[in-house]
Design a protein around this nucleic acid. Sequence first.
DNA 1: AAATGAAAGTGATGTAGATCACGAACTTCA
DNA 2: TGAAGTTCGTGATCTACATCACTTTCATTT
Lengths: 190, 190
Amino acid sequence: MEAKEILKSSISKIATLSDTQFDYFFSHFKKHTLQKKEIIVRRGDMVEAEYFVVAGCLKSYFITPENKMCILQFAMPTWWASDYDALYHQTKATTILDCVTDAEVLSLSNDDREKLCKELHQIEYFFRWRTNKGFVASQRRLLSLMSNDVKYRYEELVRQYPQLYNMIPKNLLAAYLGVSRETLSRLYKD
Amino acid sequence: MEAKEILKSSISKIATLSDTQFDYFFSHFKKHTLQKKEIIVRRGDMVEAEYFVVAGCLKSYFITPENKMCILQFAMPTWWASDYDALYHQTKATTILDCVTDAEVLSLSNDDREKLCKELHQIEYFFRWRTNKGFVASQRRLLSLMSNDVKYRYEELVRQYPQLYNMIPKNLLAAYLGVSRETLSRLYKD
DNA sequence: AAATGAAAGTGATGTAGATCACGAACTTCA
DNA sequence: TGAAGTTCGTGATCTACATCACTTTCATTT
């Protein structure tokens, strides 16, 4: 399936757009073909777009002063990613967005998103819905981080996203779970 | 200032509504006067509304099987709160929402919000904006939880929300920071 | 095919923060 | 005003996980 079709199918699960409207919407996206490890948003960059994943996998993460990597999000196909803090507040990126695997993404600039949201009520509805979903997901993760131990968090992650288990190196899963790779390695002997 | 004025002023910072439009919007809210410790959303309830805080302070939290309290959010005046996971997915509440102090809130049902969002584009804009803000805030907190130690998190919290420091018992601050009250107590001798 | 580097396993040891236990001070309410 | 509940401080001990150090396996590049 083509990038355009994947986006269309993803949007139409939520919002109702005519073909003409969708074509107009789509005309604001740029397609990017990226290699494993390629960096999309660099720390310190001004961020002016967000990214819809068509194929492959991205990660957004923070590097602490002690050089520890903390992964905020993996982005699989049909997910969106960016440094939303920087994007919405028009400040410099504090997190990095890069490719875990070769990937294909569609970018939409902040200005175009806002323009489209104004022009088409259904687009605004879509983006409200999408952020609602992201908000709830990140609240859930917060809760899980506060209330469960590493073992349980790891099992939950594998249960909920079995694709990640095969696709993503364990050291990255550890950085997502907020645990050292050594500890994670010791855990899954069971 | 009256509840209506507080809501109006809060909304008008983001969205442009005529007086008539705002009055219509406001007509969907119900006012509630609540006492300290009063419970708004109980675990297991069906959640059908969200709450705008006019005065006082709420907290939303989860109780683990081991009886540990994990606070997801404090809600101060002009903030919104609910069990959004349950509200959006129309499932039973897993978190509790109650009053840290006596409080006055305005409730808006899920159905009315969706109806209003459909009817008035500016309302949809407002709610998209609000969730964006909440999403970014919870991503930030996630990052802080993963990358900073308790001491730093505590100092950040006090720096960012000095009101909380005086208003809220330390055991609740501990439950928000994800740390035992004893450890927190030992920390702020400095 | 050799070489470089990333990913992963594992032992030894260190440490931040949890848990338990007790007592003091401060609130709330009958 | 007295009693019960909340909040808070602090010592002693415990533990989950981090850190360091070394080795092995596997993947990538030239």
